[in-house]
Simulated scan of single mutants.
Amino acid sequence: MPITGLLLGTALGFAMQRGRFCVTGAFRDVWISRNTRWLTAFMMVIAIQSAGIFALAALGVIDLQSKAFPWLATIVGAFIFGFAIVLAGGCATGTYYRSGEGLVGSWLALVFYALFSSIMKTGPLAQLTALLRGITVRQGNIYQTLGISPWVLVALLAAVVVIMARHHLARPGFKMAALPPEKTGLAHLLFEKPWGAFASAAVIGIIAIAAWPLSSATGRNDGLGITTPSANLIGFLTTGNIKLVDWGVYLVLGLLLGSFAAAKTSGEFRVRVPDAKQAVKSVAGGALMGVGASLAGGCTIGNAMVQTAQFSFQGWVAFGVMILGTGAAAKLTIRRTGSTAPAVAKPARSSVGV
């Protein structure tokens, strides 16, 4: 049932907003503050999802298919996308959940991201996208090329993530001033207590696993995805073709609902209007995100989170090049130093955990 996409998207939007899970910040921190805590959390999502989907594939619940690697489009598109998310102030998913928080700049970025995704996939530039993505090599995933079991790579990735996580957990944690809780029990945990990077990653990893069988049940053999559903949503709004409203479209609509619910119940929703300069950057960043993600075959979710979990060449190459693109934009546009991790909209009421 496509409605499961709405429910799962709502859960994802809620988790990302409450966890302040900003992939742009994770990539940018590598260059600006030399901090890999949020990058580690992002890789934790990949590792959890990878273990889950290969287990589901082994049980015959889902079918993981290998495709040719469109190397040129992936490299060009991923760099454009990585550069664009700094301008837009968030990646595709971050733009959705920040729109739910009331950031008008994210609304602008989201509209132009979806619009240019549609232009690149089914509009005037669709032939250019097809041409560039038609330049391929046959290798579709890493473990088949190496001739090994995917579980070897799952174990290796898990080991790397554990080492990275232990490194950060062993360091003295930054504790924010604790305020007396206003809520108790589950309400305090869900709507008030700050969610740590690694706890958020665990929740999002489980959601990413659940996306596969739920999506496959509707005939969409894939996991989480943002770019194509966003393009399909524009297609539906402009043509009225109800066939475009699939599980993925319900997913992105759920992202908005979930993030709005999380921001509203935690007191973090507030309409914030950007100045003219930031508005222009949001529009440009959103448009370039749509171009880059369409060429690369996915955004930070579809490529850097989902394709990587399958150990596809496209996913891991896109992941690395996106970080390079983010670094280039950060060096050109950010003049101050220090952490760029997103801050919550009000003082935390308890210490930040994992």
Rank of each mutant, 00 (worst) to 15 (best):
M1K: 14
L7Y: 10
L7W: 11
L8V: 06
T10S: 14
G13Y: 04
F14P: 01
Q17N: 13
G19D: 04
V23D: 00
G25H: 01
A26R: 00
R28M: 07
R28V: 04
T36D: 12
T40W: 03
M43A: 08
S50Q: 08
A51Y: 07
A55N: 01
L56Y: 09
A58S: 13
A58F: 05
A58E: 12
Q65A: 14
S66G: 02
K67M: 02
K67S: 08
K67E: 03
I75H: 10
F79W: 14
I85F: 05
V86T: 14
L87G: 03
A88Q: 11
C91N: 10
A92C: 05
T95C: 08
T95R: 04
S99P: 01
E101K: 12
L103V: 11
G105R: 15
G105I: 07
M120N: 01
M120H: 07
G123Y: 06
L131Q: 14
R138V: 08
R138Q: 13
Q139R: 12
Y143G: 01
I148M: 15
W151Q: 05
A155C: 14
M164T: 04
R166W: 12
H167R: 15
A178H: 08
A178E: 11
A178V: 15
P181V: 12
P181M: 12
T184F: 00
H188K: 12
L189T: 10
L189G: 00
K193R: 15
K193W: 07
K193Q: 08
P194K: 07
P194D: 06
P194R: 10
A197L: 12
F198V: 01
S200F: 05
I204K: 03
A208G: 09
A208L: 08
L214N: 06
S215Y: 00
S216T: 15
A217T: 09
A217S: 12
R220W: 09
N221A: 13
N221C: 04
A231P: 00
I234S: 07
N241P: 02
K243S: 10
K243I: 04
K243D: 09
V245Q: 05
G248R: 03
V252E: 09
G258H: 01
A261P: 01
G267A: 00
V273R: 15
A276W: 12
V280S: 09
V283N: 04
V283Q: 01
A287V: 08
V291H: 03
A293Q: 04
G298L: 05
G298E: 02
T300P: 00
I301D: 01
I301N: 04
Q307Y: 04
Q307C: 02
A309L: 02
F311T: 02
W316A: 06
V321W: 05
M322A: 10
T326R: 05
A329V: 10
A329H: 04
T333Q: 08
I334T: 14
R336F: 13
R336I: 07
T337K: 14
T340R: 13
T340Q: 14
A341G: 07
A341P: 00
A345D: 11
V352H: 10
G353V: 12
V354A: 13
